[in-house]
Design a protein around this nucleic acid. Structure first.
Lengths: 140, 140
DNA sequence: CTACGGATGCAAAAGCTTCTCATTATTATC
DNA sequence: GATAATAATGAGAAGCTTTTGCATCCGTAG
């Protein structure tokens, strides 16, 4: 029994071909952050006949099941990333779209403190740093 | 000469009725964070005949001119906020949509450090904390 | 192997935002 | 003030991403 189908089963989802293929796609992509359109196009290129609507539906289910995280980077459309356990935030290049990840316990701690001070029960947070990446800086 | 028209002039924008009305709307609203739709509807209620396309155009111009800040809260559509100089981040209630603001120099400093460590030249950043606000917590 | 219920695909619809273009208003100039 | 040049506006169409309706198909329990 493959790892993918176990993941699906654990998430309470039927093991179907589209779900398997999308999960594989997310795992094998060298870019960890993909839009629904990216996933759709990659599947087409691999010769898989999966509808765009299904891609959206499946990604949303994966998100609900905790298998992927959905990010709202600037520019409108959602980006999906395989959830490999550890939380992290993102730093993005505004020139080339490159995405790097980081994790800072100091910031995490301050966020919890701020929420508490404001009387909020924190459920989630998102932190994006935008800038120009090393490569784009040296090119300029 | 009104304050609003000075703001517009300084921003290099012609002083037109729609721009004046939209600026007034942003200044007088008790909610500091408004969507384009919010602005449009409020204007209609005030008896102003301003098209939605104009609202979007003007808000974008205001953003470019630095008069307002555009935020991408979860849920897709943009929110606009009058830029009153000081930078701050946001904490939002996922139940009622309430928005509070905060500013934390520790976090700001860490962000600059993280960008530097990653070799990025930082241009911008956005931090949203999501949670349940005091009011909604007591109601539950 | 069968049958039930959920999953899929397609096309249509929805929601937000931008664009097109004819019309109108604003500003610099006389 | 009036005028001409130029930019701004309004209305609707178009564009994009995402969701939905529905007939058909597939996976799974029995």
């Amino acid at each position: 029994m493959s790892t993918e189908s176990n993941h699906l089963r654990k998430a309470g989802l039927k093991v179907t071909l589209p779900r398997m293929k999308i999960l594989e796609m997310l795992e094998s992509s060298e870019t960890r952050h993909l839009s629904a359109e990216d996933v759709y196009k990659s599947l087409l290129e691999s010769g898989e006949e999966i509808g765009l609507a299904t891609v959206y539906r499946v990604l949303t289910q994966f998100e609900t099941a905790g298998l992927v995280a959905r990010h709202h980077f600037e520019g409108g459309h959602s980006m999906f990333e395989l959830n490999e356990g550890d939380h992290h935030d993102h730093i993005l290049c505004v020139k080339c779209g490159r995405v790097d990840e980081f994790m800072d316990e100091t910031i995490e701690k301050r966020q919890r403190q701020i929420a508490q001070d404001a009387g909020y029960e924190i459920t989630d947070h998102s932190l994006y740093i935008y800038g120009i990446c090393p490569d784009c800086r040296s090119k300029a």
